[in-house]
Design a protein around this nucleic acid. Sequence first.
DNA 1: TTGTACGCGTTATCAA
DNA 2: TTGATAACGCGTACAA
Lengths: 340, 340
Amino acid sequence: MKPDIPTLEDVAKEAGVSTATVSRCMNAPDQVSKNTREKVMKIIKKLGYTPNFGAQALAAKRTNTFGAIVPTMSNAIFAAGLQAFQEELGKQGATLLLASSGYDLEVEEKQIRSLVSRGADGLLLIGTQRSREIYRLLEDRRIPFVIAWNYKKHPTRSCVGFDNVAASYNLAKRALDLGHTKFAIISAPLEHNDRAEGRVIGIKKALEEESIDTGNLQIIESNYSIENGAESFEALMKSKSRPTIIMCGNDVLAAGAVKMAHKMGLSVPGDISITGFDDIELASVIEPSLATVHVPHKTMGRVAAEILLKKMENPEYHSNLKLDTRIIQGQSLAMPAKVE
Amino acid sequence: MKPDIPTLEDVAKEAGVSTATVSRCMNAPDQVSKNTREKVMKIIKKLGYTPNFGAQALAAKRTNTFGAIVPTMSNAIFAAGLQAFQEELGKQGATLLLASSGYDLEVEEKQIRSLVSRGADGLLLIGTQRSREIYRLLEDRRIPFVIAWNYKKHPTRSCVGFDNVAASYNLAKRALDLGHTKFAIISAPLEHNDRAEGRVIGIKKALEEESIDTGNLQIIESNYSIENGAESFEALMKSKSRPTIIMCGNDVLAAGAVKMAHKMGLSVPGDISITGFDDIELASVIEPSLATVHVPHKTMGRVAAEILLKKMENPEYHSNLKLDTRIIQGQSLAMPAKVE
DNA sequence: TTGTACGCGTTATCAA
DNA sequence: TTGATAACGCGTACAA
């Protein structure tokens, strides 16, 4: 009556061989004669045997499972990257354990511990900001990990990302070249988010090079949603010193800004220029099309998987890979109406 | 030199108690005297002990891990639903094992087997289309699963979804009421996708009720991307019998259609009405705003988790939950230019 | 090429 | 309240 789950032993008995032989059929087929192998495989199929993961992990000390912790799955950029990450892992028969931290470093830390204790063979992490102890934990246990979505040269750690500061700097530079001097920023929350932080830093750097005071630069921090982008935009445009350009930390916030601009009867880029970041599909649908920064999210996910798999084979392997970004010259960025 | 990972035994020795006591400290704290418990917990912290997952699974026969298989993570609707699913699980200390099948039923089947052998305590699946054997496998092994994103009454299986047919029917009905008679459809690929299929069926049903011939109704199947939506739209508008309304299987395809309409110098909804499905954020940013169907994706993810957790406690529990959708009356749907 | 037998780190049963 | 100890299912030396 019990729907007993077949074990290695069941297969062995039915096939008239030892459990060791059955085990070898699955893990090292060449060590078994073709004859017995075929016999065993038939029984395996017949019984619908699948190895017990716990036992396997316990005995073999590896799980063929990789963990990833992203701030959120609702963000298209992580979704696309994860998709690529998982596809690459899938090719090697590995599985993905996924958690999302909600941009909370403590939650992330718990999840790292959880994934580690679940025997993750390797980890994909976003950004570099986390406690020393957690890095220690990973390094002590020799758990390969790779950091994505932010580039930071490091002698032993691996990362695949891009230079948020430089990308943002370049975009701001372009705005300056067009004659803009009155900037404002709508950023994702900066705390515990080195990507968002980098993007703001890049803008400030560009402004300072042109001797524009960044002391009273207006920066609104806003959670990832179109609605929030719209609200922040409204607030900025109602302030006493209207900017001529609003640079947004990501395309979603920018989309909200554009939406609100229309609602307020403002022309983009006639009355106000708006820029985004990420180049998600959304950017091309908005009218006017969004000036933004293209980031190779899928490539990042795929490469992260590759690095992790290489680290599995050779623990000494590491790689700091900086991917290129490029500015998408959308119509939402143009010269300011009146250059003083 | 080895960064030996502490085990239950290490903790037991250091604390001067038995392994059983340490185990109880973690799993049934009330069965241990406050005194020893505190002593043990201190050692656990000190040594940085975390239970070995494999061993735990092997001994306890449950993993506190749930699996989910989605067609793709790149689709915002699944991303949002998964996010909610995971958050709900997280509250109960459970973790998510995630895989994506790329809309391939065979891949999905492999992944189900993989997740099962990994000891997933329960599964979230999308849609109802899969082989009998796989349902048998799950039911034989008494693995709780819940089907989401499509509703189908069933005496023993659980699902939380919505009626794709009815929702789509209602939207088509509204278009008919406005006077449209010449329809065309841009759908997601229909094979192995009961949601997409249902949406087409709903439209056909509405048309047939008005005695509109659906025999030569133009349906283009198109993969999920703005670009594909645009191409399909162009093809339809260049055909000899131009429709007055194009109903799209999802908002992303619809966004592409709107984009191409602008490019072709066509006014929406003046020259052509366009509808979407899903009501992702994108729908509200497009101009004109998209007429679409709101689907409670997050709720679906959350409820799916709740059902699964209930099934864990009581294997007999099951629930067929139909969530409501509602039509979003966007500006992209209006009366046709000339009603004949 | 195949089989024997031990160990992996927990949980859970049964005594004490 | 605590401690021995037997599973749990598999991988893998080692032996045959």
